[in-house]
Design a protein around this nucleic acid. Structure first.
Lengths: 204, 204
DNA sequence: GGACGAAGTGAAACGTGTTCCTATTATGGC
DNA sequence: GCCATAATAGGAACACGTTTCACTTCGTCC
């Protein structure tokens, strides 16, 4: 896991030439999600992923230079799906508080429906080091986009404070998620913590 | 790293009978800090810790059941030192905001003075799973104590909001730290993020 | 001082992430 | 179709966290 901050990035969909390659990449991520969903972080074993995706171990490493890259990329794909599914759909709620809580609750409930998957993805995200910067950045941008849209639907020029608040909410959400994943707090606590934080940050 | 939530805890100072045992424990934690300080998370290798602490590998595992337990315990000891060093010393500042920022800035600056050590301890803390609950809890309580004391020096009956705000600040601080450790944000950004969060949460 | 159990030692062995190497197969240009 | 090159397969090898085991040392009770 060491080494300098090299250019070893995960191969993104765009830079994959052939359809066969895009399909391999998809199979790998599908296998990752399936294994994570069944047994969490520890169950995502590189040999098992390769076998289930029907690629050689070397190929897996060619597409994703480490287990962490793999899992964070899988997280990114899930986030993209979630973001795409809710784009253009207005978020219900009369106030920023209500809309943000709606978004957080829906997402949190979704995650809690698959605890193992959530554990795997969250641990990977938290353990990632500098070499996973770009994959992490993708996820961070998506989260920030979803939150600011919930706060101010349709607003174009976001203030620094808008962005800062979204960031703080994202931070708290991640911490709460980590607490839940590691068995420190209950599912209800996550919602409660979020509600308190959002109430403090978005006084309508 | 798998397994059920067993009773495998780190041996705490209190339950260590002899002076020789307390000394072994101290040597182990000293070696851990030294190695972490020199090379970060990856450099804290169990064989190296055992050798430097002059104990057998099996003994190291008897005192700390995993590398994560070891590092989080080391973090706990450092936190205890920091907390003890500032207990009874009033924190300068006229407002809660000023005092909290003073505390955070001082601590952050201390951490940034030893990036490798900070990286090792932060990664361990974030990667910890349910089996490290009690060690994590120790750290969480210390952090919460320090923050609420900075917010309301001498106050006895803290409200739910006081505790919630401290928790949110702690969450944001951790996230910011993770961002810095993983090279996503600069040292200055950490301070800036904290200032924004504290300003939003503690409107004087 | 001897016996007994707990704690410590030393080393081998195992599991899984990661790297490396060689043979084989796709792919694209001529 | 044929060659050059890249991509993939298959699998051995390595590193480090963790486990295990046979043996030794330490502390305590008689």
């Amino acid at each position: 896991m060491g080494g300098s901050v090299s250019s070893a990035n995960s191969l993104s969909v765009e830079e994959l030439g052939s359809a066969a390659q895009r399909d391999r990449r998809k199979r790998i991520l599908d296998a990752t999600i399936a294994l994570a969903s069944k047994g969490g972080f520890d169950a995502v074993q590189m040999r098992a992923v390769a076998e289930q995706a029907d690629v050689a171990l070397g190929t897996l490493y060619r597409y994703f230079p480490s287990k962490i890259h793999l899992l964070v990329s899988a997280l990114g794909r899930e986030f993209e799906r979630a973001e795409a599914a809710t784009r253009d759909k207005p978020i219900p709620g009369d106030t920023a508080h209500e809309r943000v809580m709606f978004l957080l609750n829906r997402t949190t409930k979704g995650l809690q429906g698959d605890p193992h998957l959530t554990e795997a993805l969250t641990r990977a995200f938290m353990f990632a080091d500098a070499s996973v910067q770009s994959e992490i950045h993708t996820v961070g941008m998506l989260l920030s986009t979803m939150l600011t849209r919930a706060m101010h639907p349709g607003k174009e020029d976001l203030t620094d404070d808008d962005v800062a608040i979204a960031r703080v909410i994202g931070d708290v959400w991640l911490s709460a998620l980590v607490g839940w994943v590691t068995g420190r707090t209950s599912a209800g606590d996550v919602t409660k913590q979020m509600d308190v934080a959002v109430r403090l940050l978005l006084r309508d």
